[in-house]
């Protein structure tokens, strides 16, 4: 109960700061609109207000504060505006509609899940190779690290262009960019996990004359499970980011990334913010889902 109160307090503080930030962010636009509508604002004329500080304008025109939370195209939309937009584009729209966020979220989610599956599979395979072969450890690991130092926003268009030129388009290029981001945490986590059995455990298997394959299936793989789940949680969030980023340079017409892009073209800040929130909610749901699977799996394995 006490922790619920604490969580709500933090939430309330964030919302309060957000509302407060809307006032100076939006005041100039609001005053211009009000003046156009015939209201008396201080000082008069948009040119006179251009170089004035936002806080000074707020102080002189305090009657306009409530209007900063109700603009049609605010610089910073107020929380309730985003909430209303989210509500209207999810619950109030048919999910087949092009204006439904659920539709766009599904487009991004399908690429995310496909990329996550590819990235996880690739990550586990690489980790197995790295753990069992010194050559792979020395040759693959540095490249895996280098791959993550290149900004994905720079790489994504190239991947899409290259894939397009060999005839690959649709969901796959998005999934590959998403996999590009998600394989790395899996490699790092699985290498650590597969190496986690201590010397005594390895010696024990040696006394049974166990083959490397038996050691892998019976000891290394089960031991790595807690590490794998920690990696998967990071990996799925990266996958989602990858899928959204992949939608940006392609001029995609559907997906959360497309919503972000369209919103910024037409100055629809409320649409941008609701797409951002949709992405954040989607990511938390995915990570939460993995957390549940992790708890069940590790509990059944007696490791939680």
């Amino acid at each position: 109960m006490k922790s619920v109160l604490a969580v709500l307090t933090v939430l309330a503080a964030i919302v309060a700061i957000w509302y407060a930030a809307c006032v100076p962010m939006n005041i100039k636009g609001v005053l211009t609109d009000l003046e156009r509508a015939g209201a008396q604002v201080v000082p008069e004329g948009a040119v006179a207000r251009r170089d004035r500080g936002a806080f000074g304008l707020v102080a002189k025109n305090s009657f306009a504060i409530s209007a900063t939370w109700a603009q049609e195209r605010p610089r910073l939309p107020a929380p309730h505006q985003v909430a209303v937009e989210l509500w209207q584009t999810t619950v109030m729209k048919k999910i087949t509609s092009k204006r439904s966020l659920v539709f766009h979220a599904w487009v991004t989610l399908s690429a995310t899940l496909m990329g996550f599956a590819i990235g996880t599979g690739l990550g586990i395979l690489l980790a197995v190779g790295i753990v069992h072969s010194r050559v792979m450890d020395m040759s693959v690991m540095p490249w895996a690290i280098v791959s993550q130092t290149i900004p994905i926003i720079a790489l994504a268009p190239m991947i899409i262009v290259v894939l397009y030129s060999i005839g690959v388009q649709g969901i796959l290029p998005k999934a590959i960019i998403s996999a590009y981001l998600s394989f790395f945490p899996v490699v790092v986590g699985m290498v650590k996990g597969l190496r986690s059995p201590d010397a005594m455990q390895i010696d024990l298997l040696k006394t049974y004359n166990a083959s490397p394959a038996q050691g892998f299936w019976k000891l290394r793989l089960p031991s790595s499970m807690p590490y794998l789940f920690a990696s998967l949680k990071i990996g799925i969030a990266s996958s989602l980011v990858g899928a959204i980023v992949a939608e940006l340079p392609t001029g995609a017409v559907a997906g959360l990334g497309a919503r972000l892009l369209a919103g910024s073209y037409y100055g629809q800040t409320i649409q941008i913010w609701s797409a951002l929130f949709a992405a954040a909610i989607l990511a938390s749901v995915l990570v939460g889902l993995l957390g549940v699977i992790q708890r069940i799996t590790l509990k059944r394995m007696g490791m939680a």
Partner: peptide, 14 residues
């Protein structure tokens, strides 16, 4: 031979 180590080293998942 069978070998017994200082720690039991049982697999927690079994």
């Amino acid at each position: 031979y069978g070998y017994v180590f200082q720690a039991a080293g049982l697999y927690p998942w079994r």
